[in-house]
Design a protein around this nucleic acid. Structure first.
Lengths: 257, 257
DNA sequence: GCGGCGGGTTGATCTGCATCAACGGAGGCG
DNA sequence: CGCCTCCGTTGATGCAGATCAACCCGCCGC
């Protein structure tokens, strides 16, 4: 395993600061970081390199992470097969270990370089009792993520393959896309296989769908992880959950109108 | 529409108290109700009759319900078709309106007679800042429900028809089942069509599956809404998410070992 | 150079579930 | 009683997507 070194933790000079997303005062992380580090929070700041793993012990449910930059995925593996579910977390998200269901195995995987804060639940809750606005922001953030989970469930439950791919592209565009002229560039944080898992599609099927989207002129692909949405309207129209995804984004800063 | 009267709100003498489930001190509702009503909570207690609807305005995201008895479902309808998702809430659950994604329409429907408390978010949060144990319980409850949503997504994403039905039966047994001898009796709060929606299956397919389960001796059906699990082990074994569902139940009182 | 490997693509085939249609039974109401 | 509607069942059919297989490509280490 020559990849072993990838698993090693801590400071990595190549981890670019990822455009230091501005947090508005209404957001949880924005309020939290303006408080300064004087609070007795016992928070540790971690810099994750791409594909770095954080194993989660079955009992350790009192850990909470807050994602500052980058994208992190939570993965749960079912007992027998490799089939599992992937949950994605984006900058500003709160990642409560107690909210990750306890299958045989669960772990966090940094999809990109990422900065996270790690808290113990107790001190964080104590801080929340001292600032009702912070608590309200925390609560709104949890609502948002629960709603996002519900939308994702809806995507998996009711949409067919092309619609799921469209939903994924829209979700990624809203979360980490950058407008370039009339198109939207996305730096995909996942491999094709992982996207397929996220969408509960077969990797082969997903490959066919992407080819079809490219043939139809909906997207172009510069390199393996760089796609551009050429026709936002067409992609948005083919996916019934677009309004819900956009509404979820309205609660946070978005690069798109 | 002679069913109109069903939609009317408020006190219904026929609403049987539904076995007044005991809440342990670790649970959110347990702690909350021991505080008495002296707190300035502005909570209103609602008694819902079966199939009673509570429409949710798109903007009204600062409402929080707590379910004391009964089963309530949240339903979101997509723009075009009737296809939507159903989320189920059981006694002890917290139902934050902000966590229900905003599709074209969303509403709560009481699946059975139900007692719920309705809060405005602000006073509830203020109360939470005054009692860190209550806040911790609230937080654990939200974690639990987020984890349950993740498990449900896993069920929809990775399991086939029979496995989904097994998962549904196990979930219902854990939440509202009562052991009767070596079997487990369940009073189904949903119609077949609703169960099919909840499992993202076709109603026809679900009907076939139930028939198969009955033919295989896994379940028996006394009346339309009363099923008994004859062979818990066999049903549990055919569904890969059983351990996760059971683990989720461990955080709350359960009628089953 | 070579071989191995993970990731991605493409074609051929299979299958589980949705779809459509017809029917039956239960309850409400005139 | 007859009519209607809602819920559930069953059969025949078609299709989307999973599965299996072969293959390509870039990368790494020897």
């Amino acid at each position: 395993m020559t990849l072993r070194d990838r698993e090693r933790p801590q400071a990595n000079p190549r981890a670019q600061p990822q455009a230091a997303t501005q947090r508005p005062p209404g957001a949880f992380l924005g309020r939290l970081t303006t408080l300064g580090d004087d609070a007795p929070l016992q928070a540790t700041s971690l810099k994750l390199r791409p594909r770095q793993r954080i194993p989660l012990a079955p009992a350790q449910d009192d850990l909470i992470f807050a994602l500052q930059t980058g994208v992190v995925s939570a993965r749960v593996a079912m007992t027998s097969s490799a089939a599992g579910l992937i949950t994605l977390y984006f900058p500003g998200d709160v990642l409560s270990v107690g909210a990750i269901p306890c299958f045989s195995e669960r772990q966090l995987v940094a999809a990109t370089a990422a900065d996270v804060l790690r808290f113990k639940a107790k001190p964080l809750l104590r801080l929340l009792t001292s600032d009702i606005e912070l608590l309200a922001a925390f609560d709104r953030q949890r609502d948002r993520q629960l709603a996002r989970a519900a939308v994702h469930a809806t995507i998996l439950a009711t949409l067919d393959g092309p619609q799921r791919l469209a939903a994924f592209l829209i979700e990624m565009a809203l979360e980490i896309g950058t407008p370039v002229g009339t198109t939207i560039a996305i730096d995909l944080p996942l491999t094709r296989t992982e996207i397929a898992q996220y969408l509960a599609l077969n990797a082969d099927t997903l490959s066919r769908l992407v080819s079809r989207f490219k043939a139809d002129g909906l997207i172009t692909q510069k390199s393996r992880h760089q796609v551009s949405l050429k026709n936002w309207r067409a992609i948005a129209d083919m996916c019934p959950v677009t309004p819900a995804l956009v509404a979820l984004e309205r609660n946070r800063p978005s690069p798109l109108s």
